[in-house]
Amino acid sequence: MATIMTVDDTASMRQMISFTLNSAGHEVTQASDGEEALKHARKKKFDLVIADINMPNMDGITLVKQLRDLPEYKFTPILMLTTESQEAKRQQGKSAGATGWIVKPFNPEQLLNVVKKVLG
């Protein structure tokens, strides 16, 4: 059982990710952009953060940078949601300190596999 934060400006994706992770027994917090995610992260330590890249207010790459600056998030796994055509963004995310990525589209089983992989 882990506490996981999902960050996405798309409500349907957030819902799908939360629902999937919940049903696997994880506790999930939702945030709709980087700013909101950062607020949550300052209050509580999550075991895993799954963040979209393109978001209003604060995008995923900035969020990764900011999270890595917080002492509690130095080594926390942070996964980015990317699409097939976003290789450049993926690299930017990596250099900002992201752990890895999940390529959209994905189905619930794929998501759970990746999460299992990072949570060990």
Binding site: D9, S12, M13, N54, P56, T83, K104
Partner: peptide, 17 residues
């Protein structure tokens, strides 16, 4: 950017759904 994000979100989620 906002216009781009709209379409990008639709693209990303529509595949998943």
């Amino acid at each position: 950017n906002t216009i781009f994000r709209v379409v990008h979100s639709i693209k990303g989620s529509s595949g998943t759904f």
